[in-house]
Design a protein around this nucleic acid. Sequence first.
DNA 1: TGAGAAGCGGAAGTGAGATTCCGTTTCCGT
DNA 2: ACGGAAACGGAATCTCACTTCCGCTTCTCA
Lengths: 227, 227
Amino acid sequence: MVPVSSRIPGDGARAPDPADERPRRADAVRNRALVLAAAANVFAEHGTGAQIEEIARRAGVGVGTVCRHFPTKQGLLQAVLASLYESVVRQAEDALAHPDPAHAFEQFFVSLPDFYLRHRAFAEQMANELELAAQPVRDQLMAAISELVNRAQAAGAIRADIGPADVSMLLSGVAHATALAGDLQPMLRERNVRIVLDGLRPGSTEPLPGRPVSFTELRDAKQHGPR
Amino acid sequence: MVPVSSRIPGDGARAPDPADERPRRADAVRNRALVLAAAANVFAEHGTGAQIEEIARRAGVGVGTVCRHFPTKQGLLQAVLASLYESVVRQAEDALAHPDPAHAFEQFFVSLPDFYLRHRAFAEQMANELELAAQPVRDQLMAAISELVNRAQAAGAIRADIGPADVSMLLSGVAHATALAGDLQPMLRERNVRIVLDGLRPGSTEPLPGRPVSFTELRDAKQHGPR
DNA sequence: TGAGAAGCGGAAGTGAGATTCCGTTTCCGT
DNA sequence: ACGGAAACGGAATCTCACTTCCGCTTCTCA
């Protein structure tokens, strides 16, 4: 227990807030960035099981430094994840910038599995739920995907009976499957993406069961379904 | 170092062979089976991170017993995996028994993601390479899938420009993606499978890049590609 | 340039969980 | 039924990473 007399007034507010913007020393800022970059690489190579020590070595700092900047491995992973999410959002927005909705959709659909390939940790993490911390970025991503889907549908480039939730699920499947094959079979990866895209073309055979699901509905279902 | 005089002649041959068929006590046989069954359940529920102690409890034996039958957790996992593989092979063969090739293919394609859903460990493990120990069963599975694909193609039920390797990759993607969604969204899972199946229908738009790849070729590529 | 705070490295501390060990119990052939 | 080998249970041990700690170094600001 901290004696009351030693507590700084306003202590509560200066606890480890996410928004603790106090000025940092230049070397601290630099090291933090080095660690984050190294962690991204190491997680990409070895998955979430990668060791702190390896990250420290790669960043050229001591383990103590890694752990000071990111008190837990979990936290470090989340930080890396957040930056990866941002990068994916950027890809989605790049695609969205293309005037042709069909091309935009396809561009994103092709680029994502590629991204997964170089970020195994990202793929693994999608599997778990701890990524919840990345909420705001996640919402951005969902919005972008929805937009891509809607536009492509409006242009008749993809079938009308699917929803964003379908697309994101397909994407995660393709990404995962092709990441397993690794760089080994780039052609197989390419073919895989094409086949799934063909499944998304309009004018398919029988109607799908159920109906299109948006991310909003999906989230609601997740909240109410379990528990 | 073991003194030479204490070494049993023929020691080398009685080392932990895989083919050590010496008769076991009845309780040992029973317990081994109990452990294997419990492990399958526990791994299915908690993934490969499940704890030995939980498995022991579930099997109604002590941890010592688990570890005697399966000296390492890795080994236990592989044993479970092998039995799951067998079960998948059985599913493929069941499907193969159906006279209509189109139905056979679809039946298997639908049943596998379902199986993954209840065996998270299996799905996780597909991601790693340690499953190599299951080689013989694996070959059986590949043979069965190839057969399903070939027959379906001969019957014109699925497009001719794909190979078994494409199918298995798609399958693993669908399986993984839908396993993440869990039981939560069975409808989404169903739709996902249908969309991919639509992508496999004949008469698709543009031709796929590359050419169909068989498992044999895939394996060769894996052996020669890296290293 | 010098005092002091902030940050650093990496050795030691922890903790969770796999593996081993051994006294006790259970089978099995005679 | 009995002797002894085989198995058992589960506490003790070992292992391996994450996390903490602290003496030393590097910044920063006056």
